[in-house]
Amino acid sequence: MQITAQNWPYPRWVAHRGAGKLAPENTLASFRLGAQHGYRMFECDVKLSADGVPFLLHDDTLERTSSGKGLGGDHAWGALAQLDAGSWHSRSYAGETIATLDNVAAFCLRNSYFLNIEIKPTPGVERLTGEAVAHHASRLWRGHAIPPLLSSFSLESLQGAHTAQPALPRGLLLDELWDGWLEAAQQLGCVAVICNHLLWNADTVGQVKAAGMRTLSYTVNDADAAQRLIGLETDGIITDRVDQFSPAG
């Protein structure tokens, strides 16, 4: 399926890093918990190991969310696979492992779930990460109707993904409206702009929709903020609070 603003199959509600803060982020345990709360679309962060394996990790470094140390991208996958990625969250998740993109793709595809892959490159390999993640996503979703949405704050990563697999849908992530943001999204062939939710108002929503793209927001954990975004007719809400917001709402 070719994803466009007019041909948009993704649900409004997206579970951040699996199940937000209720389980260790970016692990299969978190995805399973988000699914138990009724979510059908998930967001995750993907970078490359030193030997080129796409794996899930938000931070550049390993310390916050695993038993490892240093830059995640400096380690080969064999070493990363041995780390405990659950104990930092709670004892009940002790021994949970870091997930690969292959793991998450299998979970999503076998359950007909949707995925937003944030390309989160280790500094210095932005374009390479975009290219590699796009190639892996194309391979993993080959033959399936609805591909993942690729997104990034890094223009280099999005350009790499665009060059590598132009048919995959892309979204530009923004934490501020820097000069030329809309033009950059258009030049990269993005189908969506994904903003810090505070950046959306009638004007910015109107600009993006007039440019033929969809409007998504992160990370929305407050009911009033969610209602404001729904009132603005935005298209996607990424949340940690899978226990508070019904994805059917």
Rank of each mutant, 00 (worst) to 15 (best):
G236L: 01
S246I: 08
A105C: 13
L62C: 09
L115Q: 04
A248G: 12
I119V: 07
G72R: 00
R64M: 05
S152V: 04
D224Q: 14
T122H: 10
V53Y: 00
T215W: 02
L56N: 03
D102R: 13
A94P: 01
D222W: 12
T100Q: 01
A99W: 09
G78I: 04
P9H: 14
L188K: 15
L22C: 08
S112H: 10
Q82H: 10
L57F: 05
A19V: 14
H37S: 07
A29H: 02
F42G: 00
Q227Y: 06
L155K: 08
L22A: 05
A164Q: 08
G52E: 14
G236Q: 01
G180K: 15
T215R: 07
T61N: 14
P9R: 07
D102A: 14
A185N: 05
A85G: 06
I194D: 08
E63Y: 03
S151N: 05
L229H: 11
A137G: 03
F153M: 06
F114D: 13
T215I: 07
E96Y: 01
E25T: 09
G180M: 15
P9S: 13
A223S: 14
L155M: 07
L229C: 06
L48K: 07
S154W: 01
W8M: 09
G236M: 01
W88K: 08
W77Q: 06
Q159P: 01
S112Q: 15
N26A: 04
V125Y: 07
C108K: 10
G124R: 09
P148D: 11
A202H: 12
G143Y: 00
L174H: 13
S92K: 12
A248Q: 15
G72A: 06
A23W: 00
S152D: 02
T4I: 09
A211N: 03
G206W: 00
R40N: 11
E156Y: 08
H37M: 09
R214E: 09
G189S: 13
S112K: 14
L173G: 03
D59H: 09
L229I: 03
G38L: 11
Q165M: 14
E63T: 07
L174E: 06
N111G: 11
A145N: 03
A105I: 03
G72I: 02
N221C: 10
A76T: 11
L198D: 08
A210R: 04
V205F: 03
A134W: 12
P147T: 05
K209L: 02
L83C: 03
L155A: 10
Q227H: 07
T234A: 01
A164Y: 05
L198H: 11
Y218G: 00
F42K: 00
V46I: 09
W141S: 01
D224E: 15
Q159K: 15
K120F: 00
S217I: 04
A145G: 02
L56R: 03
T4Q: 13
D235G: 03
L199H: 09
Y93M: 08
G72F: 10
L149N: 02
L188N: 13
T100K: 01
W178Q: 14
F31Y: 11
L199K: 11
W178H: 15
L229M: 11
S112P: 05
W181G: 03
E233V: 11
T27G: 03
N116I: 15
Y113I: 07
G206P: 10
Y218S: 00
W8K: 12
N201G: 11
V104I: 07
E126N: 10
R32H: 12
A248K: 13
L28S: 03
I146A: 04
